[in-house]
Structures are given as structure tokens and as C-alpha cells.
Lab assay of single mutants.
Amino acid sequence: TRVETATETAWISLVTALHLVLGLSAVLGLLLLRWQFPAHYRRLRHALW
């Protein structure tokens, strides 16, 4: 049971790290898009909202 718990903890930390990385890359990508294509971003936002 001790090994299982350790594996579970490792998986949880791995998944958390993955989610953090994905979230950060998504935010960075959005910022980059907004910085590179302001007109396109505004049009996209206008279409979405």
C-alpha cells in the first residue's frame, strides 16, 4: 500500500505540473497572438462576444 500511495502522489504531481505547463503555454500563446495580431484579435473577440 505504501508503494501504491507513492505512485499515486507521483501521478498527481505529474498531472498538476502538466496542467500548469499547459495553462501557462495557453496564456503565453494568447498574449503572443494579441501582441502580434491586434486587429485580428479584436475582430476575433468581437465575433466571440
Rank of each mutant, 00 (worst) to 15 (best):
residue 8 E to R: 02
residue 11 W to H: 07
residue 39 A to L: 13
residue 5 T to Y: 01
residue 42 R to Q: 14
residue 21 V to W: 00
residue 3 V to P: 03
residue 25 S to P: 03
residue 20 L to T: 04
residue 29 G to L: 14
residue 27 V to F: 12
residue 28 L to C: 05
residue 10 A to T: 09
residue 16 T to P: 07
residue 46 H to D: 08
residue 4 E to Y: 13
residue 34 R to Q: 01
residue 36 Q to P: 14
residue 17 A to T: 07
residue 11 W to N: 01
residue 40 H to V: 08
residue 24 L to A: 06
residue 14 L to S: 02
residue 8 E to T: 03
residue 35 W to K: 15
residue 44 L to G: 00
residue 45 R to S: 00
residue 34 R to L: 02
residue 38 P to C: 09
residue 17 A to C: 10
residue 19 H to D: 05
residue 3 V to Q: 05
residue 24 L to R: 01
residue 32 L to K: 00
residue 13 S to L: 13
residue 39 A to V: 15
residue 6 A to K: 09
residue 35 W to V: 15
residue 17 A to P: 00
residue 34 R to E: 07
residue 49 W to E: 00
residue 26 A to E: 03
residue 15 V to S: 03
residue 37 F to Y: 14
residue 30 L to F: 12
residue 5 T to G: 03
residue 1 T to G: 05
residue 20 L to C: 10
residue 23 G to Q: 06
residue 45 R to F: 00
residue 38 P to G: 12
residue 8 E to A: 01
residue 5 T to Q: 01
residue 32 L to Q: 07
residue 47 A to P: 09
residue 37 F to V: 10
residue 11 W to Y: 13
residue 15 V to F: 04
residue 4 E to M: 14
residue 29 G to V: 14
residue 46 H to M: 09
residue 28 L to F: 08
residue 3 V to A: 05
residue 15 V to K: 00
residue 4 E to F: 13
residue 49 W to Y: 15
residue 49 W to A: 13
residue 33 L to D: 00
residue 23 G to W: 07
residue 42 R to N: 09
residue 41 Y to W: 12
residue 37 F to D: 09
residue 28 L to R: 06
residue 44 L to T: 06
residue 30 L to R: 03
residue 33 L to C: 12
residue 23 G to A: 14
residue 24 L to S: 01
residue 34 R to S: 08
residue 37 F to H: 00
residue 10 A to F: 04
residue 46 H to T: 02
residue 21 V to F: 11
residue 21 V to E: 05
residue 48 L to F: 08
residue 8 E to Q: 02
residue 19 H to P: 01
residue 14 L to D: 05
residue 28 L to V: 02
residue 11 W to M: 09
residue 13 S to Y: 09
residue 42 R to P: 01
residue 38 P to M: 15
residue 29 G to K: 06
residue 6 A to T: 09
residue 3 V to L: 11
residue 48 L to D: 08
residue 10 A to V: 07
residue 23 G to S: 06
residue 5 T to C: 05
residue 40 H to N: 07
residue 42 R to A: 11
residue 17 A to R: 04
residue 25 S to I: 04
residue 22 L to V: 14
residue 49 W to R: 01
residue 18 L to R: 03
residue 24 L to V: 10
residue 48 L to T: 09
residue 33 L to N: 09
residue 38 P to V: 08
residue 42 R to D: 15
residue 8 E to V: 00
residue 9 T to I: 14
residue 29 G to T: 13
residue 17 A to S: 07
residue 40 H to E: 10
residue 2 R to T: 12
residue 43 R to L: 10
residue 38 P to Q: 15
residue 4 E to Q: 12
residue 10 A to G: 10
residue 22 L to C: 12
residue 14 L to Y: 02
residue 49 W to L: 02
residue 33 L to E: 10
residue 10 A to S: 11
residue 20 L to G: 06
residue 42 R to K: 14
residue 23 G to E: 06
residue 5 T to I: 05
residue 26 A to V: 11
residue 31 L to Y: 13
residue 35 W to N: 15
residue 11 W to V: 08
residue 23 G to L: 14
residue 6 A to D: 04
residue 16 T to I: 13
residue 45 R to H: 10
residue 42 R to H: 10
residue 19 H to C: 05
residue 46 H to K: 06
residue 14 L to M: 12
residue 37 F to L: 09
residue 3 V to G: 04
residue 2 R to A: 11
residue 46 H to S: 09
residue 43 R to Q: 08
residue 2 R to S: 12
residue 7 T to E: 02
residue 2 R to L: 12
residue 26 A to H: 03
residue 10 A to K: 08
residue 9 T to G: 12
